[in-house]
Design a protein around this nucleic acid. Structure first.
Ligand SMILES: [Mn+2]
Ligand SMILES: [Mn+2]
Ligand SMILES: [Zn+2]
Ligand SMILES: [Zn+2]
Lengths: 142, 142
DNA sequence: CAATAGTTTAGAATTATTATAATGTAGATT
DNA sequence: AATCTACATTATAATAATTCTAAACTATTG
């Protein structure tokens, strides 16, 4: 979703009613310079801090999943106890900092295009994602 | 861990006491032709079916994590509600069948070696993993 | 054969997430 | 504009994976 676009229109376009809560969430998620990664908890905090709105946890979950289904959010594969989401919905790869639990985008120049030679009969490829786990240099050794 | 090796020795080597439970789990995990992927639930089922042993759930969790820490198991990054583990501890990539929730190994010929050009200062790369999500061809369309 | 540190266990606690079901509301219909 | 209805929101309960607890057990050491 582009910054400062007509969220009401955008929501209607994909068949989602532009409710107060969804518009607020659009503002929190998309009205900023850069895309970012977040957990549900992060998002709840952002909503209550940046806005003076209280949106119920269930609605935050519902809306995040609705946006994901409509292609306005992506879920990132990290085996952690919680889910991470990304407002950058283009195909891209990630670094995951195991110390801080922060996700960092790779851009195209960082990793060559992945070429998959194997194909599984009857199955189509939905996504190809690289996760590069990094950690402080002086953690495993010493 | 090689098939039919001396598990008692192998456990002692890494400072784990060779308890009845750990030896049983070694047998279930490593005494077979091929490596495989499993969830904790899968493993509990295997233990009670293949062996006539009952190992408490807490011990299964403890032991899986102990084996993981010692490098005898790998955890696979899938954004799912549960964790997946792998008895193949070599660096390799995966297909994940979103219909059946099955993991399939990629071998070296399937995906070229990933070359990471970006580096994050003060951080070292712990792992580079590709996850290829696949699903039935006639699921998204029609 | 003690002593001790590490291990197992049942069950409780925790945590992220989803389900429920009552209330509210956007958008259509009159 | 009032009414209708399908969709949304909400507080709360339920679920499910995982971790914690603390008591009982056991492998190893001396
Ligand atoms: Mn999801
Ligand atoms: Mn783990
Ligand atoms: Zn990203
Ligand atoms: Zn594997």
């Amino acid at each position: 979703m582009p910054k400062n676009c007509n969220f009401i229109e955008k929501l209607r376009e994909v068949g989602l009613r532009p409710t107060k809560q969804r518009i607020k969430m659009c503002e929190v998620l998309y009205n900023r310079e850069d895309t970012f990664h977040f957990t549900i908890n992060d998002l709840v905090k952002m909503i209550s801090e940046e806005m003076n709105e209280k949106i119920s946890l269930a609605t935050v979950y519902n809306t995040v999943h609705a946006f994901e289904k409509k292609g306005y959010l992506k879920e990132i594969s990290i085996n952690s106890d919680k889910s991470y989401f990304d407002t950058n919905t283009s195909a891209h790869h990630h670094f995951f900092d195991e110390d801080t639990h922060q996700l960092i985008d790779c851009d195209k120049s960082d990793i060559d295009k992945i070429n998959i030679r194997k194909n599984i009969t009857g199955k189509k490829i939905n996504s190809v994602e690289v996760l590069v786990r990094v950690a402080s240099d002086n953690q495993t050794q010493k």
